[in-house]
């Protein structure tokens, strides 16, 4: 081990890395919000009594959960754009890919939470004269939120992790900036270590937050 470390190169590139991190957060957060909304729609479709809709939603979740984000982002950015003639920026392609993938994961989270509410509660609220919508909003949803919020938070950590791949289609996120800097300065060990530590810290903080929320919500709901 004769490798001499030189962290000053990383320090000199810090502004670029920070810019990359900001881009990573922008992509992740945009995709996160989209995935959270789309996931709920898919979950509701999956639970709908209309067989065609629930089958379609089921196919959606099975299909998108089966693919690696890397294959998928390449397929969208290089393949699909060619066929449709759509001009997607790397940002848009990244957000779309991550959204489709993680909405499939999140829809399963929502679905299992909604299904975990005993059916008797629904019958009871119908019996009390509450309509379908009121029952969902006032009885089912508040309980679902308690179950879902911690997992929603953890999912954000997963999205940040998956977002590193967007560097491969030329989005200038944290990983892209790291690769560029590492190639520029021949300091691959220092730069990749820095990137790994940053991702690790974000993931740990976000998942801890999820755990904390889980305990809080459980306490306040019982």
């Amino acid at each position: 081990m004769n490798y001499e470390m030189d962290w000053s190169a990383v320090w000199a590139q810090a502004p670029q890395l920070a810019k990359g991190l900001w881009f990573t957060l922008q992509i992740s957060f945009t995709a996160y919000v989209c995935a959270a909304v789309l996931g709920l729609v898919i979950a509701l479709l999956r639970l709908s009594p209309i067989r065609l809709l629930s089958m379609a939603a089921f196919a959606y979740t099975q299909f998108f959960r089966a693919i690696s984000i890397y294959i998928y982002i390449i397929w969208i950015y290089f393949g699909l754009t060619m066929v449709t003639g759509l001009e997607l920026t790397p940002f848009a392609a990244s957000v779309i890919s991550i959204t489709l993938l993680h909405s499939a994961y999140l829809s399963e989270v929502y679905r299992s939470a909604i299904q975990s509410i005993p059916y008797g509660q629904k019958e009871a609220s119908y019996g009390l004269g509450l309509g379908k919508v009121r029952t969902f909003l006032d009885v089912v949803l508040p309980q679902v939120v308690v179950l879902v919020v911690p997992q929603l938070v953890s999912q954000f950590a997963m999205i940040i992790k998956d977002s590193a791949v967007v560097a491969l289609i030329g989005a200038s996120d944290l990983m892209a900036e790291t690769v560029r800097a590492a190639n520029l300065d021949y300091r691959s060990f220092e730069f990749y270590t820095t990137a790994a530590v940053i991702y690790l810290l974000i993931v740990i903080v976000v998942s801890r937050l999820g755990g904390l929320l889980e305990r809080r919500l459980k306490r306040s709901s019982t």
Partner: peptide, 25 residues
């Protein structure tokens, strides 16, 4: 365990292949 789960595979791949291998020679 936490490190293995927290770092994106892509980042770890480049870290191992270009960083660690050079660091360890």
């Amino acid at each position: 365990t936490e490190i293995a789960r927290g770092i994106p595979p892509y980042v770890m791949l480049l870290w191992v292949h270009f960083g660690l291998s050079r660091f360890l020679g």
